[in-house]
Design a protein around this nucleic acid. Structure first.
Length: 280
DNA sequence: CAATCCTTAACTCCCTGAGA
DNA sequence: TCTCAGGGAGTTAAGGATTG
């Protein structure tokens, strides 16, 4: 494959700016997928992802794209949490106070995502509904699965039924990676009869109903044998549709009156925390 | 039966060779 | 000739097929 001409690169750069301006802040991979869906770059590492990643870096260095339009969610800072005063600590506690919505519900819910790129999109929803979000990053690690299983087991011990939902690509590796999460979590479970696993996206039904853009299934994928049809990226789902799917999935476990009551109690308790400052 | 290679995701730096 | 697109290789965690 010959290298691209400057004119061709200019087309890519224009598409990048357009995509980022519309959906910022985004990860590099999100931008890459946007361009793949639009057919601007191929879905290959070398001439696709890497080109987008490099151009994004250059454009940020050149000041064409602001640094805070692009986020790197794969690297985090560990920094000490410190307060200037007790008032400050109380203020923070009041602001961040969250009452456990699930305490009185008979179900426990976990959401699993295949890739980090869309965790930011999903987090808004899962966080708001008090549900943990687990990002496997392709195939999960045994350590991560064990940790998730500890949370599930605590819920099972409390007599709850655990619902574990998955969002991932509809491709051989994506489906297989989820299968492996299911079997590992079952293996760690103290009672796998009270566990329910469900793929929330991408499902063949969603591909048909939402007319999602597909790509040919990679024949080189060692798991391609036996996989039916075209592959569809989770990224092919519009962000708002993805959020709605997650919201609907979780809210199915929360009766409306419980939620209303919960919000009222939480508000009162937060108020109490604010008032504690008067005693300092 | 163990080693090797390819697959998933998200990033980076370094170097080569083709386009300007 | 010189710049820059793209390939190679690297970090972490895995599974599966093939090779020796």
């Amino acid at each position: 494959m010959p290298r691209r001409t400057q004119a061709e690169m200019e087309v890519i750069r224009t598409a990048i700016i357009e995509a980022v301006r519309k959906d910022k802040p985004m990860t590099v991979r999100q931008v890459f997928y946007r361009l793949v869906v639009r057919g601007v770059v191929p879905k290959v590492e070398g001439r696709g992802y890497r080109t987008v990643a490099r151009e994004l870096r250059n454009m940020r260095r050149d000041g064409v794209i602001p640094y805070d339009w692009i986020v790197d969610s794969s690297r985090t800072v560990r920094r000490p949490l410190q307060y200037g005063s007790m008032e400050e600590a109380l203020e923070r506690a009041a602001r961040l106070y969250r009452r456990n919505l699930w305490g009185d519900l008979p179900h426990y819910v976990q959401v699993w995502m295949e890739k980090e790129a869309l965790a930011g999109v999903a987090w808004d929803v899962t966080d708001g509904l008090g549900v943990s979000l687990w990002v496997a990053r392709g195939y999960s690690s045994i350590s991560y699965l064990y940790e998730a299983a500890q949370h599930i087991n605590r819920a099972l011990e409390a007599g709850k039924v655990a619902y574990i939902y998955n969002l991932g690509d509809h491709d051989p590796s994506g489906c297989d990676a989820w299968e492996s999460v299911v079997s590992e979590l079952q293996g760690f479970s103290i009672d796998d009869r009270r566990m329910r696993f469900k793929r929330a996206a991408v499902t063949p039904e969603q591909i048909r109903r939402l007319n999602l853009p597909s790509r040919p299934t990679k024949k080189t994928d060692s798991r391609a044998a036996g996989f039916e049809g075209e592959s569809v990226e989770l990224d092919a789902l519009p962000p708002n549709t993805l959020r709605q799917i997650i919201r609907d999935t979780i809210e199915a476990h929360i009766p409306e009156y419980i939620r209303t009551m919960h919000e009222q109690v939480e508000q009162q308790e937060r108020q109490t925390l604010w008032q504690l400052q008067d005693y300092l």
